[in-house]
């Protein structure tokens, strides 16, 4: 069985604001019975202030779908419509003290119902090119459709590249077979009918890159390091984490992992990904370590 947080259980067993809302003036329906998840969100909006005075839901779905719906109604009550549009699926998951990766789509459904209900109130059309595939990477909740899209858009060829672009495969690595299958399939489509070789597997150890033409000065080196960190920050911030440079000592680069990254079980994978980028950018083998590993001054 899933490991649901106490908060998820509590909202499932005692859902808030369930059932029809007679005075609703904004209704959002998303999902379908085919998918096993469907949510109707009903809003009562004050036309003068655009404040959501009441919100109710009806949900066909599993425990976390019902809990996410209940949480959503609690979050948005009292908000203005513009404030409510700022609510992300991560906010819903956070409100419930987290959801299992396989269940994050329940929070996504909540956010989509909210957008649909607000569009309905405003008399707008809301559409979403929502498509969800089989879950491939359970560590980072990345599905097949997303991997396929990214592979196609960026012409990716290796599991390692897929990990850099989507994070899929960057954790326990159990899904690498699945990622290789997607790569092979996209490659086959690209090449058209004919013989196709399997994609190269993720190398166990990164190959040593070619040495750069000229040795970097320490200032140039730090600037490059900062550049790499800046490039990964948006990805970490999306998961409520962050990173900043602590120190550089020879081939060791120490970083502070902040927010959700600090103490995250995926810390090693995060650092590994950053290290790979550093090696590529600097053209030399370096090690990226958490600042807690810095030698203590004598």
């Amino acid at each position: 069985m899933w490991e649901y947080s106490d908060k998820v259980r509590e909202h499932f067993f005692n859902p808030r604001n369930s059932g029809p809302l007679e005075e609703a003036n904004g209704i959002g329906d998303v999902g379908s019975i085919q998918c096993g998840d469907a949510l109707r969100l009903m809003l009562k909006v004050d036309p003068d202030t655009e404040i959501i005075e009441d919100a109710h839901f009806q949900t066909f779905g599993c425990g976390s779908a019902i809990a996410s719906s209940s949480a959503l109604t609690e979050i948005i009550k009292g908000m203005t419509l513009d404030q409510a549009l700022e609510v992300s699926n991560q906010n819903i998951a956070d409100y419930l003290d987290g959801l299992p990766p396989e269940k994050m789509h329940c929070s996504v459904m909540g956010r989509e119902a909210l957008q649909a209900a607000i569009a309905n109130y405003r008399g707008e059309e809301w559409s979403d090119d929502h498509e969800e595939g089989a879950l491939i990477c359970k560590c980072f909740a990345i599905d097949a459709v997303m991997i396929e899209d990214v592979v196609k858009a960026n012409n990716l060829n290796t599991v390692e590249e897929v990990t850099f672009y989507t994070k899929a495969g960057g954790g326990c690595a159990a899904c690498h077979e699945g990622i290789e299958e997607i790569l092979a399939q996209v490659k086959a489509e690209r090449a058209g009918p004919g013989e196709v070789s399997p994609p190269p597997a993720c190398p166990a150890t990164p190959e040593a890159p070619k040495p750069p033409a000229k040795k970097l000065s320490i200032v140039e080196k730090i600037a490059k390091i900062q550049e790499v960190l800046e490039s990964v920050r948006p990805m970490l911030q999306r998961d409520h984490g962050d990173v900043e440079l602590a120190d550089v000592q020879g081939k060791k680069i120490y970083v502070h992992l902040k927010g959700a990254c600090s103490g995250c079980m995926m810390e090693a994978a995060t650092l590994g990904g950053i290290q790979q980028k550093m090696i590529e950018a600097l053209g030399e083998l370096v090690q990226v370590l958490p600042s807690s590993h810095m030698p203590v001054e004598a």
């Binding site: 959002g28 329906d29 998303v30 999902g31 379908s32 019975i33 085919q34 998918c35 469907a38 109707r40 989509e112 649909a116 809301w126 559409s127 979403d128 090119d129 929502h130």
Partner: peptide
């Protein structure tokens, strides 16, 4: 029909 989702 009574439940008319924006997407399915």
């Amino acid at each position: 029909e009574s439940f008319a989702p924006t997407y399915a």
